[in-house]
């Protein structure tokens, strides 16, 4: 079944199969998934554990490749890119927000946020200006010189969000971004991302079980046993 949410897409999967080999057993991650995700929207992928949410995010994030089918992100068929080109593509186009924040512990909040700009070769003066602006946008201007272990969970997640948005990517992928946060902090983080989406015109794709996050979604994709079983657009 072809699942299309909108005409203007940021990513498109066509007949994608992903199978993992675990010892002698083949585990189906995704099976025949065809999907198009709308640009500049807040898409949430929901489903039980082991349903294929993370596999789908990995493929969208160009950190994994399908066994069958094609994956296009921002119009680029990722199968045509070699490892270095994929790295550069991710550096330019895709932002990641990890469940456990995954900040670099030896870098300060400022340096963590600045890091993606270093990878894309942004000049020093511009880097500084944009990094400070982004830190202020996530209300962490006063924590610029703090290392991750000196920040609370919510603050770390805001740094992670700032890091994912600093390069103004076309697509931000987040795997359970509120899973390790309390309800209040999670709500604040969602509001922040929503604001960023509006101001930076970025497309967000999340995997989540969080009902709070689903309430904010423009589009919701439900996945089970590696297959998409439902797609819904908010009213």
């Amino acid at each position: 079944m072809t699942q299309t949410i909108a005409e203007e897409t940021v990513a498109r999967l066509n007949g994608v199969d992903k199978i993992y080999r675990l010892g002698d057993v083949d585990v189906v991650g995704l099976k025949g998934v065809t999907l198009a995700l709308r640009r500049q929207k807040f898409t949430v992928i929901v489903g039980p554990s082991g349903s294929g949410k993370t596999t789908l995010l990995n493929l969208l994030g160009c950190i994994d490749t399908p066994n069958l089918g094609t994956v296009e992100v921002c119009g680029q068929d990722i199968a045509t890119l070699d490892d270095n080109q994929l790295s550069d593509f991710r550096a330019m186009k895709i932002g990641f927000i990890f469940q456990n924040f995954s900040l670099i512990p030896v870098l300060t909040a400022y340096e963590n946020v600045e890091y993606p700009l270093l990878l894309t070769g942004v000049p020093a003066a511009e880097r500084k200006e944009r990094t400070l602006a982004m830190l202020n946008a996530v209300e962490l201007g006063d924590k610029a010189n703090h290392r991750p272990n000196q920040l609370s969970g919510g603050q770390r997640q805001r740094v992670a969000i700032a890091r994912s948005l600093i390069k103004e990517p076309a697509l931000v992928l987040a795997d359970e971004p509120t899973a390790n946060l309390d309800t209040r902090t999670g709500g604040a983080i969602i509001a922040l991302m929503r604001r960023m989406q509006e101001t930076q015109h970025t497309s967000f794709v999340f995997s989540s079980h969080d009902p709070q996050l689903m309430e904010w979604a423009d589009d919701t994709v439900t996945i089970r046993d590696g297959e998409i079983i439902d797609m819904r657009r908010a009213a």
Partner: peptide, 14 residues
């Protein structure tokens, strides 16, 4: 290892 994965996901080359 996880940090290596993070850096690679952010776009750091091998």
């Amino acid at each position: 290892t996880v940090e290596i994965g993070t850096l690679r996901a952010l776009g750091l080359r091998r």
